[in-house]
Simulated scan of single mutants.
Amino acid sequence: MSYELSYWSTSPLPAIFAVCGAYIALMMLMMCLFMYSKQRKSAYIYMAAAFFFIMTYEGLNIHSAWTGLPVFAAEPDILRDIQLFSFVLLNISVVMLYRKIKTMHYWLPLLSVALLMLPLMLSSFLPFTLDPIWKKIYLEGFQLIAVYLAFTKVTPHIGQPIKYALGLTVYVLWLILQAIHTYSIALSPTLQALALSLPVIFYSVVCFILFIRIVELMQSIYRSAITDGLTGLFNRRHFMKLLDHYASQELKISAIFCDIDNFKKLNDTQGHAKADEVLKQVSRIMEEELDGIGITGRYGGEELVALVVDRRIKPAQVAENIRARVAEETIVTISIGYSVLRKGVRGDELMKQADKAMYQSKTTGKNKVSDYRSLRNVSTEPAESIG
């Protein structure tokens, strides 16, 4: 907020709001630098630079508010230049949070600096002195173009357009009040207080947007670490981790092991794209059948697994539902085996039992469901079930 507008010299509000703005900028600067150290995303550097200039701008305003003296008496527009440049950087960084930008756009900060310094450079080279009013008109024009581009080029291309549009609206309201006070009439005390608070509100909106985006990115990173990229099911490592967790509590759970029949032939005859499509179809069916009663995972290749954790549900029925739907809704069939956890059996052993049952289905005709207890070697396994 530009305190060249001559707000109350005796009021503490200019200094208070400037301190609030500087504090928010400092916190955002530290957050952006921390995130850059973790992810090396260029957007964080651009936003850190934007908040550095905002912090500088507000720091100079604090000095002016406390001393009552202009910081740049010879060039009063320099403070405005800092504010405008920080606004440009902030908009570029917000776009970069959500999408990659063209290489040419990286030159926008340098172009902005050149345009903002143009009046100063002209004053140095021209044989006569420019009227200060022309400098103000030039900066107002720059500001209008920057705001227009923010609404038309930034807001539609980010993940939180409504929130950012509201923030920009707050920013525009501040500019309007600033212009009224400068070129028309003095604002009332209430409007002066509102004008002082608006930049802080705008910074807070940007802070909120950054926080939400960081949470989204963290969730995306975590999700990609525990799921299979093709099917969206849990990957083998995370699935087995969950299985071990349930097994260690000796809950009544059941493991289901599925293998798509003749999948290699499908790959060879119809190509990987078709095979991937079928794999995703089968995965979707399994997710739907296990929804609310268990979890699903991709064990490897065409092998898909599931864990029934609801003790009221019969695993045989779940397995049969999966088999029937795959045969009816896709171009492939599926061989399935399942096993119920018994005392003394670890998670990895339970999965091996389900795998053996699946192999029994595979070698005795395919497109069928087998219970591990039906195998001949079941007599070597503990007989007591967990209640």
Rank of each mutant, 00 (worst) to 15 (best):
S6A: 13
Y7M: 07
W8T: 13
A15N: 02
G21T: 02
Y23T: 14
I24C: 07
M31W: 14
F34N: 10
R40A: 13
S42I: 15
Y46L: 14
E58M: 14
A65K: 01
W66P: 08
T67M: 03
P70L: 03
V71T: 08
A73W: 10
I78C: 09
L79V: 14
R80F: 15
L84V: 06
L90I: 09
R99A: 06
I101L: 02
T103S: 15
L111Y: 09
S112F: 10
A114V: 08
A114P: 04
A114L: 10
L115P: 04
L115W: 09
T129L: 09
L130D: 00
D131N: 10
W134F: 12
K135P: 11
K135E: 15
K136F: 10
A146F: 10
T152K: 15
H157F: 12
G159Y: 02
V170T: 06
L177A: 06
Q192N: 11
L196C: 05
L198A: 04
C207G: 13
L210A: 07
I214D: 00
V215A: 12
S220G: 10
Y222H: 14
S224N: 08
T227L: 04
L230Q: 05
G232Y: 02
G232M: 02
F234C: 05
F234I: 05
N235S: 04
F239A: 01
D244Y: 05
S248Q: 11
I253G: 00
A255N: 00
A255R: 01
F257D: 00
F257S: 01
F257L: 02
L266W: 02
D268A: 03
T269N: 09
T269Y: 10
A273P: 12
V278I: 09
M286E: 02
E289R: 04
G294W: 00
V305I: 07
A306E: 00
R312V: 09
E320A: 06
R323P: 03
I331Q: 12
S335D: 05
I336E: 00
S339Q: 01
L341I: 01
R342L: 03
R346C: 13
E349Y: 11
L350S: 00
Q353G: 03
A354C: 03
Q360Y: 14
S361G: 07
K362D: 03
S370L: 06
D371C: 10
L375E: 05
S379Q: 09
S379Y: 11
T380M: 13
P382E: 00
